[in-house]
Design a protein around this nucleic acid. Structure first.
Lengths: 359, 359
DNA sequence: ATCGTTTCCGTAAACGTTTACGGTATTATG
DNA sequence: CATAATACCGTAAACGTTTACGGAAACGAT
């Protein structure tokens, strides 16, 4: 049986932590020599180095991060900042996981670790970031869900902290960013719909100040213009990034006196809610209305098959990671100079959901 | 215009970092007094304390984390450990975000920060954890996706590091855990199906060594036994936690000479893939086969409506956070003693997908 | 006025690293 | 053999905090 009565971890972290001093004692060496041996400094005997490394491995010694970063002024950590709850919501977990994976492959070359910083939903995003930066939590930051005006960007730039953003912003401190190619999405989808005779095309934009809403609205406007169409304000549907919002949008759309014949869903989460509501109303996607969406784990499995835009998230993550590395003084030399500010292409996966042709 | 040519962050982190020394100089005080003032120690004049706090706020001073944790031997950080890619996959992002939110409310009382540690998919999970623990990254750890035998548990217990696991394991070091009530899910769903006349009920279990597969298999076996039924090995479908796997399971199921009349999906991601494949084959969920699933953001919007089990993730997260706090020496006194090892109840949401009645 | 308390603050050590510097053997050079 | 160069290692300072300790005022009581 186990000691159910009082399970309080024995010594906390420090209790059993094995430090460089302990390792040095074990070897009969000074801590200086041990440190140099482990860090592959030139002025240490090869035999000694082997001996030290062997002992370190045997005793499970790993340099204490606090000590190291205090001395070096750097942490070896890169932080991806997101907000609990309302962040990647609607994209499904594969979105963020794909990006993470890419970032990590970029960071691995320099033995940097990626962690996700979770801003509580009841704390101000800017305050939280300030706290984390000032505390010296990481050597570089990756910001997501960038706002139209985003004071976090100004703050980081002013502090001289290396950072990149996933998503551009009108707050521009000259920092690198990578963003979805919303212009491309607008052009391709609207041209496609227009060629099928659609003239009333609805779009969806976030309800809040997320910057992509501004970007996409403009992109859609000019794409429509290029087809000789106008953007009807009545056909701009605000959303929050979840499934219920898609359901709600469908309701509003169906209630319209002059219904659109097509809709472009900017957020993947919307799709299934919209589908559900349409089906309830006996309106079949692809047959009675055209729907174009974004990628999510569910996208390939919807019935009727969804037409959607897909991005290569892994390579996006790699680019994002490299952009950050290029702006970190230590690593900049290994990367081409010049700020990365790049829209990332989307590929159109053709399904049945936009099959409707207006004669 | 901006300086596009060479955007390398100015001084890195340290360059502009304002430390306690700087703050003390500014105030004409010693660093000791400043520190005491900020930490609400009794032996400092109230007027001085106000002056210090005001100046700290004005200058944006935040104690450097490395210095602080080096001195105190604690970091003020709790780490949720997950694996990039294969972790929460299939559950949708609301699952993990709900849990995070709960954990954070529990931690907020003690001003602890929650971060997510992302083990790269190409690194061994145990090695990664060892690295993070030894480096002193956090004061406490929350492990997820526990394996049937999970050496991480033994390691943490041996090191005396406070930790809890989300999901039990056969590796038992007496640590606290919280897990889904798989027995309850098995009993309720199987009793429900049996009462509708089902006798060939298929179940799904993870392909890998994830512990919940072992737990659920046994739970299902005894729940079936209670209904006078047996668990047919042919009706145990292995899965990986994603949508494509659900599609695949449906294919295998349809190809069976003696098809099951019902299936229980243990992972939410499977559902939509299974639905898709069934619909392709002209087999309608709820009419031609009974399907019971788990909660995901999509669950309420599937057609036909899914019958599924839902958990209150926020309260689960709170309990998980409190369990961890109770095992941390600093905070244990604020929490009831006794190890938390708890299965978390699920609620059945009735839909149409299990409507099929066998006469 | 003396002495004991209390209040407040400065000093310095410690946490675990890394690294500049200096010192002692060892080897090379004349 | 004497000297210079080299190889290797120990010493100590520094990073930014927190906190035990001690000291100097200010205050209270006798």
């Amino acid at each position: 049986m186990h000691h159910f009565a009082l399970w309080v971890a024995a010594g906390g972290i420090r209790g059993t932590m094995i430090g460089i001093k302990r390792l040095a004692d074990e070897l009969g060496l000074s801590i200086g020599t041990v440190s140099r041996a482990l860090n592959n400094r030139p002025d240490v005997n090869d035999a000694t180095r082997q001996r030290v490394k062997e002992a370190a491995l045997r005793l499970g010694y790993v340099p204490n991060q606090s000590g190291r970063s205090l001395r070096a002024g750097q942490t070896g950590v890169v932080a991806f900042v997101m907000q609990t709850g309302h962040e990647i919501t609607g994209h499904g977990d594969t979105f963020i996981m794909g990006v993470f994976s890419g970032i990590q492959t970029a960071l691995a070359k320099h033995r940097l670790d990626l962690v996700a910083l979770l801003c509580p939903s009841d704390e101000d995003a800017e305050d939280y970031l300030k706290r984390m930066v000032s505390r010296g939590f990481a050597d570089g930051f990756i910001l997501s869900s960038t706002q139209h005006v985003d004071r976090r960007i100004d703050f980081l730039a002013e502090r001289g902290v290396p950072f990149v953003t996933l998503g551009r912003s009108s707050s521009d401190a000259g920092q690198p960013w990578i963003d979805t190619d919303f212009a491309g999405i607008a052009e391709v989808s609207i041209a496609r719909l227009a060629s099928k005779g659609h003239r009333r095309i609805a779009i969806t934009v976030p309800n809040d100040e997320t910057n992509l809403g501004f970007v996409f609205t403009e992109a859609a406007r000019s794409a429509l213009h290029a087809q000789g169409l106008a953007l009807d304000p009545e056909l701009i549907f605000g959303f929050v990034p979840n499934e219920a919002s898609g359901y709600d949008i469908a309701s509003r759309l169906l209630a319209l006196p002059d219904r659109p014949t097509a809709i472009i869903l900017l957020n993947p989460g919307l799709t299934i809610g919209l589908y559900r509501r349409l089906i309830e109303a006996g309106v079949e996607p692809g047959k009675d209305i055209a729907v174009i969406g974004r990628d999510s784990p569910q996208s390939p499995f919807l019935s009727p098959r969804l037409t959607y835009f897909r991005e290569d998230l892994d390579s996006l993550g790699i680019a994002l990671g490299q952009a950050l590395l290029a702006s970190m003084p230590r690593f900049a030399k290994s990367y081409p100079s010049g700020v990365v500010r790049q829209v990332w292409p989307s590929e159109l996966i053709e399904g049945e959901s936009d099959g409707l042709v207006i004669r």
